[in-house]
C-alpha cells in the first residue's frame, strides 16, 4: 500500500481541523488514503508544495497564480468547489448613497480588504481599472486585517464594511461569500446596497506539481469527486467547506487575476 497523499491547507478558522479530519476519514480505507498538514498562511503552504513537503495544496486563486509563477506553469489544478467557479466581487455602499456603479466611485473612498485578498483588494482594483474610472481616480482605504490568509477569514471585509458604517469610506469591495453571510441587503434594511457585481471568476483549487504523478492523484481525485451532497455522511463536510459538489477546475476563470497580478506587479513570492 502506498503512503498517504499529503494535502496542505491553511488554518483560517478552527473548523479547518474538523473539515480536514472529516475529509481524511472519507478517504480512509480506500486506495487513495490521505493526510493533511495545516499552515498559518498561503506563503508557507506554496513553499511547502514547491519543496515537496506536501503533495497537494488547497490553494486560493492568488496562491494558484503564485504557484504557476514559481513553477513556470508546470503545476496542475485537480478540482475545485462548485462555488469556486462562480465567485464574484460585490461593491456595496450605504443604502441610498446613490453611487450607482463603478463610475460613481470617482473621487470617493473605497474600503478594500487585506491586500493579498483577490476578491477584496486585487480584483477590485482591476475592475476599477477595466470597468470603472480607474483606481487612481478612487481613494483606496486598505484594511489589512488578515494578511497572509488571502482574505479567507473574511475579517478584513467585515472591517471594510464597518469602515463604511463609520463614515470613513463611501463603499467597500467584498466577496460574494461575505455578502451572502451578512444576508445581502435583506437582514439589515437601511445598511448596505450593492451597486456593482463583478463577472464571475474562479477561486480555490487543489494544486499539484509534476513531482506527484497523475497515477497518484487520479484515484484521490476520483474519490473526491464522488462526495455526495445527498449522503448524510458526506454532507456536514461539504456544508462546512461551502460547496455542494467538487467539480473539475475551470482555469479560464483565473484570467482576470493573472492579468491583475501582472498589472499591479504583485510579486510571485513573499
Amino acid at each position: 500500500m502506498s503512503s498517504p497523499l499529503i494535502v496542505g491547507s491553511v488554518a483560517y478558522t478552527p473548523n479547518v481541523v474538523t473539515i480536514w479530519e472529516g475529509i481524511r476519514d472519507y478517504f480512509k480505507g480506500t486506495s487513495a488514503e490521505m493526510d493533511f498538514v495545516l499552515f498559518s498562511n498561503y506563503g508557507r503552504q506554496v513553499d511547502a508544495l514547491v519543496d515537496g513537503t506536501i503533495d497537494v495544496a488547497w490553494n486560493t486563486n492568488l496562491a494558484w497564480v503564485r504557484t504557476v509563477a514559481q513553477t513556470d506553469g508546470a503545476c496542475r489544478a485537480l478540482a475545485m468547489r462548485d462555488t469556486d467557479t462562480v465567485f464574484q466581487t460585490i461593491f456595496v455602499g450605504r443604502t441610498g448613497s446613490g453611487i450607482g456603479g463603478l463610475d460613481g466611485l470617482k473621487h470617493r473612498r473605497l474600503a478594500l480588504g487585506s491586500r493579498d485578498s483577490a476578491q477584496a483588494a486585487i480584483l477590485p482594483v482591476y475592475f476599477l481599472d477595466h470597468a470603472g474610472p480607474g483606481a487612481d481616480a478612487v481613494e483606496l482605504v486598505r484594511i489589512d486585517s488578515d494578511v497572509g490568509k488571502h482574505g479567507d477569514t473574511g475579517r478584513s471585509e467585515l472591517d471594510a464594511l464597518r469602515t463604511v458604517l463609520d463614515g470613513h469610506a463611501d463603499a467597500a469591495a467584498i466577496g460574494i461569500n461575505t455578502w451572502e453571510a451578512i444576508g445581502r441587503d435583506e437582514l439589515m434594511p437601511g445598511a448596505f446596497e450593492a451597486f456593482w457585481e463583478s463577472p464571475t471568476y474562479s477561486h480555490c483549487n487543489f494544486t499539484a506539481l509534476p513531482r506527484v504523478p497523475q497515477e497518484r492523484t487520479q484515484p484521490w481525485l476520483d474519490h473526491l469527486l464522488a462526495m455526495d451532497w445527498d449522503n448524510p455522511d458526506h454532507r456536514p463536510i461539504l456544508e462546512m467547506e461551502g460547496l455542494r459538489q467538487w467539480v473539475p477546475p475551470q482555469l479560464d476563470g483565473y484570467a482576470s487575476l493573472f492579468e491583475a497580478v501582472r498589472e499591479q506587479a504583485i510579486p510571485p513570492r513573499w
Binding site: P14, T18, G154, L161, L165, A181, M188
Partner: peptide
Amino acid sequence: MVNHRLVLDLVERVGTAARHGT
C-alpha cells in the same frame, strides 16, 4: 434604530467558533 454592526459582529464571531461551539 437598527444596530447595523450586529450582523457583521455575528459573521465575525461565529466565523471564529468551532463547529457546534457557541
